[in-house]
């Protein structure tokens, strides 16, 4: 079973994402901000990260850059999932190493399509 780390400061979003991804046979772990997520990744890298942008302590963009610098940190597929829905943010995310980008609001079909796109399904 593949693992996915869901990183979002909203417990509602984490719950919705967990439900969708468990339905796609992922084992889920959660983090409330980038720093928590990075600590988890330092212990064990997941197969995928579903990543919010705006979070307290450490945002998703800073987390992604730090993740990619970890040994083996280029392996997890990172899918941003954010309300930052403009081309500038998307381009920055891709430049920093994001594999895909979901613009909120999202639904199961979109998550499934994006995870399929990056070869996670």
């Amino acid at each position: 079973m593949k693992t996915c780390l869901v990183v979002d400061d909203s417990s509602v979003i984490r719950k919705v994402a967990r439900r969708i991804l468990e339905g796609l046979d992922f084992q889920i772990t959660e983090a409330e901000d980038g720093q928590q997520a990075l600590a988890q990744c330092q212990r064990q890298l997941p197969d995928a990260v579903l990543l919010d942008w705006n979070m307290p302590v450490m945002d998703g963009y800073e987390f992604l850059k730090a993740l990619r610098r970890l040994p083996g940190g280029d392996a997890p597929k990172v899918v941003f999932c954010t309300t930052e829905n403009d081309v500038v943010h998307i381009a920055r995310a891709l430049h920093a190493g994001a594999n895909e980008y979901i613009m909120k609001p999202f639904d199961k079909d979109i998550v499934e399509a994006k995870f399929h796109e990056v070869g996670l399904i």
């Binding site: 381009a91 895909e100 079909d109 979109i110 994006k114």
Partner: peptide
């Protein structure tokens, strides 16, 4: 645009 279209192609 999020169903089936890779983000690189969207941009």
């Amino acid at each position: 645009v999020q169903r089936g279209l890779p983000i690189q192609l969207l941009v």
